[in-house]
């Protein structure tokens, strides 16, 4: 019994210790935001890596997510509501939920894991120590550009995902139901509010930051050779995915 209580205490302490370490890292990274201009090439490099190179995957996922949303919504509307509202129902689902969450989950898989693997490998091969020894703070040189790019690029990727998702949804609606673009996009336009898109982008902003922060935190905490790097990669993906879904719920409560 005592051992059980001890293990709960130990896990609780570990949790708060880790959460504290993440907040301290984020605070120290934010202090370097004043040096963004000096480090602009590093930031652009990461924006390219996190944003531009994720685009094909995000487009692929976006098109199919939109297509599936269209099929599912049509199935639910059938017999109750006119298919003329299919565009509105699908687009709201894409803007609020599917666009930001699926984009962030793709980013968690591709970006968070790759950040953790890259920084983790640097840690176990003493490259992080080498940066420190050269009087270069790894938080400025490695973490700041990645975290900033995460915050900026995931919302941009989400805009792409929203757009191609809508096209995918329309394509399926046209194939299955023969809906004309006027009807489909007319209903999208009729029920369109900027708040729906903005709330999705606010979510994407938070998810993007969380993904990059977790990738950096897990990467810097990597220990023990290749096995440690592998474990960090998995941990970064699992943690960031879980935090995306948790934040999705919290933000949905806050925003709606």
């Amino acid at each position: 019994m005592i051992k059980f209580i001890e293990s709960i205490g130990y896990r609780t302490l570990s949790f708060f210790q880790e959460a504290g370490a993440v907040f301290i890292m984020v605070w120290r990274v934010f202090k370097y935001l004043s040096e963004v201009w000096r480090n602009r090439s590093l930031v652009f490099q990461q924006m390219l890596e996190i944003g531009v190179r994720s685009l094909p995957l995000v487009i692929f996922v976006g098109v199919f997510a939109g297509a599936v949303a269209s099929v599912q919504t049509a199935y639910q509307l059938e017999g109750y509501i006119s298919f003329n509202y299919l565009g509105a129902a699908t687009s709201i689902a894409i803007f609020i939920e599917l666009g930001p969450v699926l984009t962030a989950l793709v980013a968690a898989g591709r970006v968070s894991a790759s950040i953790a693997a890259e920084i983790g490998t640097m840690k176990v091969t003493e490259q992080i120590d080498a940066l420190e020894a050269l009087a270069i703070d790894p938080l400025r040189y490695l973490a700041m550009p990645r975290i900033l790019s995460g915050f900026i690029m995931v919302p941009i990727l989400t805009i792409f995902a929203d757009f191609v998702g809508l096209l995918g949804a329309y394509f399926v609606a046209y194939l299955n139901l023969g809906l004309s673009p006027e009807i489909f996009f007319g209903s999208v336009k009729e029920f369109f509010t900027i708040m729906n898109v903005m709330s999705g982008l606010i979510k994407a902003f938070v998810f993007g930051g969380v993904t990059a922060i977790i990738g950096c935190h897990v990467g810097f905490g990597t220990e023990g050779g290749a096995e440690g790097v592998g474990k960090s990669t998995i941990r970064a993906f699992v943690l960031s995915s879980a935090l995306i879904l948790l934040n999705d719920y919290l933000l949905s409560v806050l925003l709606f």
């Binding site: 490998t121 120590d129 080498a130």
Partner: peptide
């Protein structure tokens, strides 16, 4: 630390950079 040079056991060169970029990094920074 700028007054120190440190030669690591495993060299600890930055994989993503060329030789010149590795050596130049402290000067650039």
């Amino acid at each position: 630390r700028k007054q120190f040079g440190f030669l690591f056991q495993g060299s600890a060169l930055f994989d993503s950079m060329t030789v010149a970029e590795n050596i130049a990094l402290p000067l650039v920074e």
